[in-house]
């Protein structure tokens, strides 16, 4: 479902990873490993199409990619339900699979947010915000997820809930995911260590950003 061939990506004009290749079939997860600063976030942003790659190709069905990072995009003045409904609406316009209120309710209970539904985003704790950010993935109906440290500030119980959701709801329905994380999610998934792909210091490319 996701095929990456010879990808070279850069951060701030400097290549950080070169010649990364992997495939993730439907129903599977790939865990990215590597020390801080190796380029996990850069790789995920490049995969999600937020920044151009210097070289190589990324292939997945169009309009099926979703990105989630440290910032959850939660509005402090909106309630939990309103936050989720907004993202469902935005994606629902092009994606009839993710409509219906029943779906929203299921997602709320899956991520243990049912009791918080009328609280505004500003009053949530860090972990609750994280859960809401992850719940967004449940309502947008995208198949290829790029998750950057999805379990930051989650407690063990919530990590397990998230892993269960990923396995039972997302992967079981033909989705796939690339996850950068430092902890064990409890998923039987192949891991990719990015250390061998570290770009050489004198690697070229990125010259189009020299004036920025």
């Amino acid at each position: 479902m996701l095929r990456v061939t010879g990808l070279t990506c850069a951060r701030g004009g400097l290549p950080v990873l070169s010649n990364v290749s992997f495939t993730v079939p439907a129903g599977e997860v790939l865990i990215l490993r590597g020390a801080n600063g190796i380029g996990k976030t850069t790789l995920l942003r490049t995969l999600a199409g937020l920044q151009p790659s210097l070289d190589g190709a990324v292939e997945y069905p169009e309009d099926e990619g979703a990105y989630a990072s440290h910032a959850d995009g939660i509005k402090a003045a909106l309630t939990v339900t309103e936050n989720l409904a907004f993202w469902a609406d935005v994606h629902g316009a092009a994606n009839p699979r993710s409509d219906s209120n029943a779906g929203l309710e299921t997602v709320l209970s899956t991520f243990d947010l049912s009791d918080l539904r009328d609280r505004t985003g500003g009053t949530l704790s860090a972990g609750q915000k994280r859960r809401l950010g992850l719940a967004r993935l449940g309502v947008i109906g995208r198949k290829v997820l790029f998750l950057d440290e999805p379990t930051v500030s989650l407690d063990g119980f919530s990590v397990k809930r998230f892993a269960d959701w990923l396995r039972d709801q997302h992967l079981a329905h033909g989705g796939c995911a690339v996850i950068a994380t430092h902890i064990d999610l409890g998923l039987a998934a192949p891991e990719l260590d990015l250390t061998p792909f570290k770009a050489a210091l004198d690697a070229g490319g990125g010259s189009d950003e020299a004036f920025l």
């Binding site: 990619g65 990105y67 440290h70 910032a71 995009g73 316009a93 967004r136």
Partner: peptide, 16 residues
């Protein structure tokens, strides 16, 4: 505001 809380990035990867 959308940039700070990450909404803008999420909007950029949305179908809009």
């Amino acid at each position: 505001l959308d940039f700070e809380d990450g909404s803008l990035v999420l909007l950029a990867t949305s179908p809009l």
